[in-house]
């Protein structure tokens, strides 16, 4: 069973929820697909067992074969290849790796070579848990390739938690692709509600089952609960804001190691979402 944890806006406690729920479970795998800003690894202490690069391809032009016809430049939709007078310019960071330029090249002058766009780290936690996270190289434009690799690597896990990127963009879609159930972590402010609506829209369009965890419920108003009721969305749990929690999180501590309140909340969410699968 694959469970994605997501949030419309950042900072609602998505990662806190992911790492604590994961640590509460008896078994399973967690992947952090927020590859632009992965944070789960700051809270989970495990043993690094594998590190692998994720590669994207980009074109390399053989000057001897090129006849400067300009077809590659005309085809490219991303301005990544520009045939000039005596050479063909390739801008690696603009290339989307669609393969079009080599397809249209009449002299077979274009080959593809690999470029690392990020890394994936595998960690062993306890004996029966795995944790993987992806990290996108600064300056790259998209983490989708890394997310897809993470999902591909873990597609056969029995229990998989997916810490998704915030928002509703292409990387969120990539992250929830294989999810059977989604948990939205939301906060009860006007911003929080507005951003959550966008996620709800996305999940409904993608036809996913989902429920909501309202975090820091004592820092907002009751609008969010009204909204959930009106929309018929399941409220999985509500969690309070506590200065002590904030302090522990600041230092990278797992809340379930320090708070019975928080452990109970995780137990309840696990039961609602996983049923007896966690036994």
């Amino acid at each position: 069973m694959n469970i994605a944890i997501l949030s419309g806006k950042g900072g609602t406690g998505k990662t806190t929820l992911s790492v604590n729920l994961f640590s509460y479970l008896n078994k399973g795998t967690l992947i952090d697909t927020d590859v632009e800003e992965p944070n789960s690894h700051l809270f989970l202490k495990g043993k690094l067992i594998k590190e692998e690069g994720v590669y994207k391809k980009y074109p390399l032009v053989d000057d001897d074969l090129c006849n400067y016809c300009g077809k590659c430049g005309d085809f490219c939709n991303f301005n990544a290849i520009i045939p000039a007078k005596k050479k063909v310019l390739v801008f690696q960071d603009l290339c989307h790796d669609c393969g079009g330029c080599s397809l249209v090249c009449p002299t077979d002058a274009i080959k593809y070579i690999d470029k690392e766009v990020g890394k994936i780290y595998h960690h062993q936690i306890d004996d029966n848990k795995l944790f993987l996270y992806g990290n996108m190289t600064v300056g790259e434009v998209s983490g989708v390739k890394i997310i897809e690799t993470l999902e591909e690597t873990t597609k056969n896990e029995e229990i998989l938690l997916i810490d998704s990127p915030p928002g509703t963009s292409c990387s969120t879609v990539a992250a929830i692709k294989g999810a059977d159930y989604c948990i939205i972590c939301a906060e009860p402010t006007p911003f929080g509600i507005s951003d959550m609506r966008m996620v709800v829209e996305l999940l409904r369009a993608e036809k996913r089952n989902f429920g909501v965890v309202v975090n820091k419920y004592n820092l907002g108003n009751s609008e969010i609960f009204k909204y959930l009721e009106e929309e018929g969305i399941e409220l999985l749990e509500k969690i309070k804001f506590d200065r002590e929690f904030a302090n522990l999180l600041a230092d990278g501590e797992l809340l379930i190691n320090h708070s019975e309140y928080f452990t109970n909340k995780m137990a309840n969410i696990a039961k609602k979402v996983l049923g007896d699968k966690n036994d």
């Binding site: 950042g10 900072g11 990662t15 632009e36 800003e37 944070n39 700051l42 809270f43 996108m136 600064v138 300056g139 790259e140 434009v141 998209s142 983490g143 990127p165 915030p166 963009s169 990387s171 904030a246 999180l249 600041a250 230092d251 990278g252």
Partner: peptide
């Protein structure tokens, strides 16, 4: 938030950038 194309588009060529952070392990990391 983040560091991908949308952020790059937002910061290129500006006069000043203000980065808002918070004192958490994730805040510093990001």
């Amino acid at each position: 938030p983040g560091i991908a194309c949308n952020v790059i588009s937002a910061i290129t060529g500006v006069s000043k950038a203000i980065i808002v952070t918070e004192p958490t392990i994730s805040g510093l990391h990001d």
